[in-house]
Structure formats: structure tokens, C-alpha cells
Design a protein around this nucleic acid. Structure first.
Lengths: 218, 218
DNA sequence: AATAATTTTTAGACTTATCTAAATTTGTTT
DNA sequence: AAACAAATTTAGATAAGTCTAAAAATTATT
């Protein structure tokens, strides 16, 4: 049996490793899990013993195929629950994350398959992140970050990197949501802020905003 | 903070105490929790320290008002999720219990209030058990057990005591569901079995079935 | 290449919920 | 009311996940 804590570590490693592709170091895991490096080391050893991860002392970890399958399955559940919360239970996109963190650990294949069907097989969650299918395959969007968008080109907002309440509420209050049309008017080299044109307004966003907003050419 | 284990003990005590009205002894709790009496003693002490229960050594436990509130809230969540699973996700009434055991521990007032609204404030779960409202008030049905029903009177099936898969599947295969009309034809004194008339059939059920099926006069 | 700084691991301790085995209390019988 | 049986509690251990403090390995700097 896999424990809740093991699942959370696996998920953290998956995200830190850029979807299972890179090596992750102990401190990064400890930080992501809000714990100490010594605790992370203990858990890494355990995950390695259980074949969820490959680990050599002082060399960091990578997830095994088995570990990646666990991670992707949790992500699938997390994102499906997020869609449910927003579409059926009137949650806003900044409210869903915390509850989905708990719902994602409920273990029932029937539950998640039926939820998927009930929601009509959504492909993206409320933050624009792709939802893996039953076999773990993602539908990839080729998105770029606002900071790297070209001036004068029309884009559509397709996702966020930061899903914190503060950031999502900032976007809401500035009239930016998934699907919002955005044209880049000017990039200020001094502080890397970006002036963008929305439907009815023109606003300037800071570099940290520009780095966390994903766009797609239309 | 209340732990998952504490919640499960409180729920078990609530059910064993006949909705918080009676004193419960240690062995009964241990048995209900599939654990040993010594473990139950430890937890009872802890619940008592945290003011969820009143406890005197060797005298059994009762839930405090605070403990009862916790129990009723978990029952509310459990039953609402059961309705969701049956009505929206195509679960059958014998499949819901196990998943609901996990869903009931998710802590979010908004989640449960919105779920309640989404389901249009159901008053009973798929087994006929009443769903407490937000304030913990039940809508009581005055039901009787089949074993005590009167001969020749028409009843409607309104619930079950035993929610095991075996029992529910037995009912399904004999054409008995919530709402099914039942008339008692004969009670056999020898083994306490009961002959009942359904819409298109007449069947004999054993005493153990007759003790677990709730009816209401129509 | 030697030393300093950083990262990672080890060692030992703590907490929660569990167990077994022994001790204690309550109840039941004769 | 003494003795036995049953129920309950205590004592001491264990496993999971965490911590602090110290040791070891790696990486960076001079």
C-alpha cells in the first residue's frame, strides 16, 4: 500500500523534475514539502526501496516509470476534481486547489472514471493545465509565457504557472481569465514589465506576472 | 485539529450509542473499529481529554455535545456523498459505502454546502437514512422493521439497517429497492421467516432479512 | 589543490496509533 | 462473600513520519 505522504512526495518530485524528466535534489523536495532535508532523505530512501524512485546517495532522485504513473494519476484526479468544483459547485479558480489537494487522494477507479464521464472528459483544468487521460497521456498545448510573447501579436490566455490565491485574484481583478484575448503593446527593458491590451483596457503588468501567465497564438 | 482516526472513533461511538443517547463499552468500540480493546482505551482517553467524550474508567463512554456535533457532521457528509455517487456517478447502492467512508473526511464547509445545493438538498441517502441539515437536525421517518409489520397491511420499503454488499445485492436480485411496495402475507412462527407480496411476485425472506429491512405504512 | 561553504546523510529522539501481555476492576455464580 | 469469568486498563514495544544536531560528501573559491 502507498501512504498519503508517499503520494505527496511523489507528486512533489514529479513537479520539481519537470514532469519526471530531470534529477531532483533533496533540499528542493524538503522545501516543496515544507519539511526538513533529513525528513526528505528518509522518505527518498523509502520511495527508492519501494521502487517509486531511483536514488544514489548525494546524487538526487528521479522517478521510476512506476513512480511517474502514480504521479500522473494523482494529477489526473486533482485536475478532474478542480473542474468539478468550478463547473458544478461554483468554486472560483483560486478556491479549488486546497480542496483538490485532499480529494486527489481518494482511491477508487470507478469514482474517477465516472467523474471524468460526468464532466464530459475535460481536457484542461480551470487553470489551463492539461488533464491526463486514463492511460496517463496528456494533451499538450504549445503555450508560451507572456514575458516571451511578441509585440503586436494577438494571443489567448491559456493558463497560469502560479496557482496561488493572490495571483489568481490579481488576474480576476484585472479582467484576465482563461480565454481572455491579449495583445502585447510594449516591453519595458528597464524592469521587464509589459504593457498589454485587453478587450476594453490597456494595463501594465510586472515581470513576475509576465512570467506566470501562459498564452497561445490565435 | 481533529485527526482522521479520532473522527472514525467518534462516528463509531455515535452509532453504537444509538445516536449519542446511550453509554458505550470499550469492547464494542474495539470491535467496531477492528482493533484491540487496549487501543480503544487509549483513544477513548484522548477523546475525553479533547472534550469529545465523557469517560470514567471501567464505566464506558458517552459523546459530549461537541462530540455529537462532529459525528452528525460526518454522517451528513457521508450521506450527501452517497447521494452524489448514486445520482450523478452511476454507483449502485451497494457500491457507495466504501468510497463515502473516505470522502466524508474532506474538510471544507463550502464543498459540502455547495454539494448539498447541487443535489437539491436531499433528505435521505440511497439506503433510506436521513441526511442531517447544516445545523445537525434530522428529518425523522417513523419506520418499522419488516419483522414487526402487520399481516395484510401495505407498506413501502424506506430503508435498510445492514448496508453490506451481500445484503443489498440480495435485495436487488429479489426486486426490492427503496420505494418498493410490500404486503406481509404470512409470518412463520417456526423460523420467523416472512412471506411477502411484491408487485409481481411473492417471496419468503428469512428472519435476518426481515430484521434489516425498514418499512413505512402508506 | 587546499580550504571554505553548501548540501546531504546519519544518529538519536519524539508523537500517533497500534500491538501483546500482564494487571486490575467489575460482574456473576455458587 | 469467595471464587471465577469477563471486561477493561496499564505497561512496554513497534512503525511511520517528523525533528535537531552532528558528521560526511560534494561543490565552489581562492
Amino acid at each position: 500500500m502507498i501512504t498519503l505522504t508517499e503520494e505527496n512526495y511523489i507528486k512533489a518530485i514529479y513537479h520539481l523534475s519537470n514532469n519526471g524528466t530531470e534529477n531532483v535534489n533533496t533540499n528542493a523536495i524538503a522545501e516543496a514539502m515544507s519539511t526538513k532535508a533529513s525528513s526528505a532523505t528518509d522518505m527518498i530512501k523509502k520511495l527508492s526501496e519501494k521502487n517509486y524512485a531511483d536514488y544514489k546517495k548525494y546524487q538526487g532522485v528521479t522517478l521510476t516509470e512506476k513512480g511517474k504513473r502514480v504521479a500522473v494519476n494523482i494529477i489526473r484526479k486533482h485536475r478532474l476534481w478542480e473542474v468539478f468544483l468550478v463547473e458544478k459547485l461554483n468554486f472560483t479558480w483560486d478556491e479549488v486547489h486546497e480542496v483538490a489537494e485532499h480529494l486527489e487522494h481518494i482511491k477508487s477507479d470507478k469514482l474517477i472514471d465516472e467523474l471524468d464521464a460526468f464532466l464530459e472528459h475535460p481536457t484542461h483544468d480551470p487553470h489551463g493545465d492539461p488533464i491526463p487521460d486514463k492511460d496517463g497521456n496528456f494533451q499538450h498545448i504549445d503555450k508560451i509565457v507572456l514575458a516571451k510573447a511578441n509585440i503586436g501579436v494577438a494571443y489567448k490566455c491559456v493558463g497560469v504557472d502560479d496557482t496561488s490565491t493572490a495571483f489568481l485574484q490579481y488576474l480576476d481583478s484585472n479582467g484576465i481569465a482563461l480565454g481572455t484575448m491579449i495583445t502585447v503593446m510594449h516591453k519595458e527593458p528597464y524592469d521587464n514589465s509589459v504593457k498589454i491590451q485587453l478587450k476594453d483596457s490597456e494595463i501594465v503588468v510586472s515581470q513576475s506576472v509576465a512570467k506566470n501567465l501562459y498564452l497561445k497564438k490565435i
